Simulated assay, not measured.
Amino acid sequence: MPPYAGPTTPNRGGDVAGTLRLLAYLALALVLVVLDHRGGWLNRARQQASLVVQPLWMVAGWPGQMARTLYDDAGTLAQLTEENERLRNELLVNSARITRLQTLAVDNERLRGLLGAARRGNLDVQLAPILDVDLDPTRQRLVLDAGSNHGVRVGQSVIDAGGLVGQVIESLPMHATVLLLTDPSHAVPVAVTRSGVRLVAYGNGRSDMLSLPGIPLSSDIKVGDRVVTSGLGGRFPAGFPVGTITALRPDDSRAFLLGEVRPAANLDRGRDVLLLRSVPSGPPIGTDEARPVDADGAPQADDPAAGGTGAESTPPEPRP
């Protein structure tokens, strides 16, 4: 333990020096306040200092700004993704609706054509929907969603807005089978509307063509002539459009012509057909006016001197 040295004497020189420094600081502060009040130079100094410090503030604020930007971008991306998905679904739904409406419009137009053909020809017909189509080259059939319970009977002629389609060969209680004109086993007696020449049109397994074999070279037949049912055989009523002759060429024997006919009916399209219930009393469908017919129901030529001979050719024997 150090020895007691007695009472200490205060350092008055140090206190005076501190007081003088305080007074000097106060005087300096007072001078600066007065100068700043009168000249505003401290304000300018602060502005200059803020310009120097501003980049530091910007750098210090970058992390927070980046965080806010990322948060906003994430929210915007999620919102845009959701809206894009919603718009895509709406587009698909609207496209499906438009396609459906277009299909309905086409079906409506076809039905109008069928009903218009029935009205023009004063036909007693029955509308039957098509349930199935078989256009195999060796088998040309239609299955109708109507049968004997709906009044469909075997032998009924089937037509559409263009012309003859075929005939009913089987009638079940709920469904019926139609043999198309283009079936290889089908033949229909026809007559040329311009000259009255009678022929037989055969199916060949193609939905876009019928065959006219055995045409005599002396027959008054040209490309572009229309052929209709002649009424021979009593199976089909006379006067229904069958098609238009598109080609004529000699056969292998060079003794006869072989013709090609484009069917008037739309055999490969459509969803409905008409079943003929009774023989029409007015002009046949597909013709502008009724033409004179002979005792067999075949149309006669208007003027033999104008190119129509009025002669008829003997149809070839039906195929076995």
Rank of each mutant, 00 (worst) to 15 (best):
W41L: 12
L42W: 10
L42I: 12
L42M: 12
N43W: 11
A45K: 02
Q48T: 13
A49I: 05
A49N: 11
S50Y: 08
L51S: 12
L51C: 04
L51D: 11
V52G: 01
V52L: 10
V53W: 12
V53Q: 15
Q54E: 03
P55I: 00
L56E: 03
L56Y: 02
W57I: 03
W57S: 04
V59D: 05
A60R: 06
G61V: 01
G61I: 02
G61W: 05
G61Q: 11
G61S: 11
G61P: 00
W62Y: 10
W62C: 07
W62V: 15
G64N: 09
Q65T: 09
Q65A: 14
T69P: 01
L70Y: 08
Y71I: 09
D72F: 10
D72S: 11
D73R: 15
A74E: 14
A74N: 14
G75W: 11
T76R: 15
A78L: 11
A78I: 12
Q79M: 11
E83L: 13
E83S: 08
E83K: 11
N84R: 06
N84I: 01
N84F: 01
R86E: 15
L87Y: 04
L87Q: 08
R88E: 04
R88F: 03
E90Y: 04
E90S: 09
L91Y: 10
L91P: 01
L92M: 08
V93S: 03
S95L: 10
A96S: 14
A96P: 01
A96K: 12
I98D: 14
I98H: 07
R100Q: 10
L101W: 07
L101P: 00
Q102H: 06
L104R: 01
A105K: 05
A105F: 03
V106L: 12
V106W: 06
N108P: 00
E109A: 15
E109D: 10
E109C: 02
R110G: 01
L111M: 13
L111R: 04
G113L: 02
G113P: 01
L115G: 02
L115I: 14
G116D: 15
A118M: 10
A118Q: 06
R119Q: 14
R119A: 15
R119H: 13
R120D: 03
G121T: 00
G121W: 00
G121I: 00
L123A: 07
V125A: 02
Q126L: 15
Q126A: 07
L127W: 08
